[in-house]
């Protein structure tokens, strides 16, 4: 790695002040699983690294009045082991578990995964399906926006120099929404997603209500599949409907061909994974109902 300066932030205010001071010359170090690789390959040559990895206030996972808050520095391992997330948002546990391997999951953070903004990010689809919000801190104060507005293009977010992603929020009304995450990679471990899918819907008298489908790795950023969602809205829940939604979602994907897979193969995967994700969300809802009944 090339030489750089290093400062370890003491708290969020200190971090924001440091980022405000150094602007584009600074890079934020959270888990480092992406940043260190990029520094080694000289993708970035920052003058200073602002290490936020010690900010325990950004590691909290807790339920507040407005919903579930996951601190941006919660690692994928923290998410997998959090009883709150296991209980309320198991799709996120699946997503976290599918990332890298134990060693990288113990370092890599949710916020880092989101702001690195690669199309295949595994944290994105489930959160988008549950319409998550993100909180950004800067010297101008805090602001909240839908997660989708964070993503601009591969490796580019709407964050400006000086901004710090601090918090991911799933609104209260969406917490009980059955959701699922499905991923297909070339190996079972340590593989980037060829396609990943998040799906969520309420069940209203046996019908789909507010279905949300998010697709990863098939467009410049994580995208929703509005046509497939519209098809499902109000429709009776059935395996056929799920399969048809998958087929529609496949037409909405805009995948590329690369050395991992062809665009056609990825489109086929979208159809299969959307169907699976919907089915697994339904199964999860059924299991939950059974649990509540018992």
């Amino acid at each position: 790695m090339k030489a750089f300066g290093y400062v370890s932030a003491k708290d969020v205010a200190h971090a924001v002040a440091l980022l405000g001071e150094h602007g584009a010359k600074a890079k934020i170090l959270a888990g480092g699983t992406d940043l260190l690789v990029e520094l080694k390959h000289a993708v970035h040559n920052p003058e200073i690294i602002v290490d936020i990895s010690r900010l325990s206030e950004l590691k909290t996972i807790a339920v507040a009045d407005d919903g579930l808050h996951i601190g941006a520095l919660a690692t994928h391992g923290d998410i997998m082991n959090s009883s709150i997330i296991r209980d309320m948002f198991p799709a996120m546990v699946d997503a976290a578990h599918s990332i890298g391997a134990a060693q990288t999951r113990n370092l890599g953070t949710l916020g880092g995964n989101l702001v690195t903004c690669v199309p295949s990010m595994d944290s994105g689809p489930a959160l988008i399906a549950l319409e998550a919000l993100v909180t950004v801190a800067s010297s101008a104060g805090r602001r909240q926006m839908p997660l989708g507005e964070l993503f601009v293009s591969p490796r580019k977010t709407s964050l400006k120099p000086g901004d710090l992603l601090v918090d991911i929020v799933i609104a209260k009304q969406n917490l009980s929404k059955p959701a699922a995450f499905e991923k297909f990679g070339l190996r079972k471990g340590q593989a980037l997603a060829l396609v990943n899918v998040g799906a969520a819907f309420f069940i209203d008298k046996g019908n789909f209500l507010c279905p949300r489908i998010a697709l990863g790795a098939v467009a410049p950023t994580v995208i929703r599949a509005p046509k497939a969602e519209a098809y499902l809205e109000g429709r009776k829940i059935s395996a056929e409907a799920m399969a048809e939604a998958g087929r529609i979602a496949a037409t909405e994907a805009k995948p590329i061909s690369d050395f991992r897979a062809s665009a056609d193969y990825r489109r086929d995967l979208v159809a299969v994974l959307v169907k699976r994700a919907l089915a697994s969300a339904q199964a999860r809802a059924a299991a939950k109902q059974k649990e509540l009944a018992a």
Partner: peptide
């Protein structure tokens, strides 16, 4: 591999296995 793929650099920090090639010395302070 120096990029966190191979795990040959694995050590345990505060009870958790991590890739020591992906951690700055300062982070381990």
């Amino acid at each position: 591999c120096d990029v966190g793929d191979c795990g040959a650099c694995t050590v345990i920090v505060d009870g958790q296995a991590v890739n020591s090639c992906l951690m700055l010395a300062g982070q381990a302070d």
